[in-house]
Design a protein around this nucleic acid. Sequence first.
DNA 1: CACAATTGGTCACGATTGTAACTGTCATTT
DNA 2: AAATGACAGTTACAATCGTGACCAATTGTG
Lengths: 144, 144
Amino acid sequence: MAKLQLERFLPYRLNRLASAVSQDFRSIYGPHHDLTIPEWRVLATLGQFEELSAKEIGRHSSMHKTKVSRAVRTLEERRWLKRRGSEQDRREEILTLTADGQRAYRDIVPKAAAFERRILDDLGTQAEPLLTVLERLEHIFRVR
Amino acid sequence: MAKLQLERFLPYRLNRLASAVSQDFRSIYGPHHDLTIPEWRVLATLGQFEELSAKEIGRHSSMHKTKVSRAVRTLEERRWLKRRGSEQDRREEILTLTADGQRAYRDIVPKAAAFERRILDDLGTQAEPLLTVLERLEHIFRVR
DNA sequence: CACAATTGGTCACGATTGTAACTGTCATTT
DNA sequence: AAATGACAGTTACAATCGTGACCAATTGTG
């Protein structure tokens, strides 16, 4: 009977690796700030673009709108972001980071960058092939 | 203020890609068999090794024991696997695929193989670098 | 041998998630 | 401008998941 080695199967390997990387990364910012991954994504997206609606955050960070909604509320309760009604469209709210939120962002971003750089350094000459093939895969699977 | 482009951040990209690949793969076997990913992993692991305890399945497929326990029960109710008490250790149960389970396995494995081959073919000369760097990353993150 | 510690597996619980329904607002059609 | 459909965001609900408690069986220690 034809068999398949699960441990060599691409979807399985990608999932396992992605989980491990995320867990590892979370252990870097988690202890200091107790952020979930959705919260981190909202923080990162708002830090990157200053002003966004929840809809735009979801589109840019690949998150479902309910996931965004909940992460936004949590961060709002933590006073890391604030809402402001939009003038053009009163259905949506413009979100921005508070001073506390910006402080957290400034604290985490260097750690995130160092985390990534460490991986790429460890990969050495294989870093560039990784980034290239990642783009190819993202294109193949229409991610983004 | 130093910024980070989330869409270029490695952990984020890996997670998004892994989800997309898994979803795409699931759309191949899902419609025919209505399997969840945990159930697929149990099926694949049992198909690969014939006889295993739940513990061993979890270790080989990187799943939490409760996740294995639930997937095993579902597959048992579907009559795709059966349990048998172990002689050596009466705490554990030896799991094997039934004829139905083997049929499903034989049906899905070629599809899984074709799915993977298709990706690697699309990648062309970048397929081999991908597999190489995957191994490196698995090693770096102590996956397996 | 007794008994404490460990282990395989299940279950109860709380947390997280996606789906679908819902509210209020905007756009389009007439 | 009234009605209809689309849309941003929240909420309710159900499904899925991990943590920890738990049971029965095994292993280790004195």
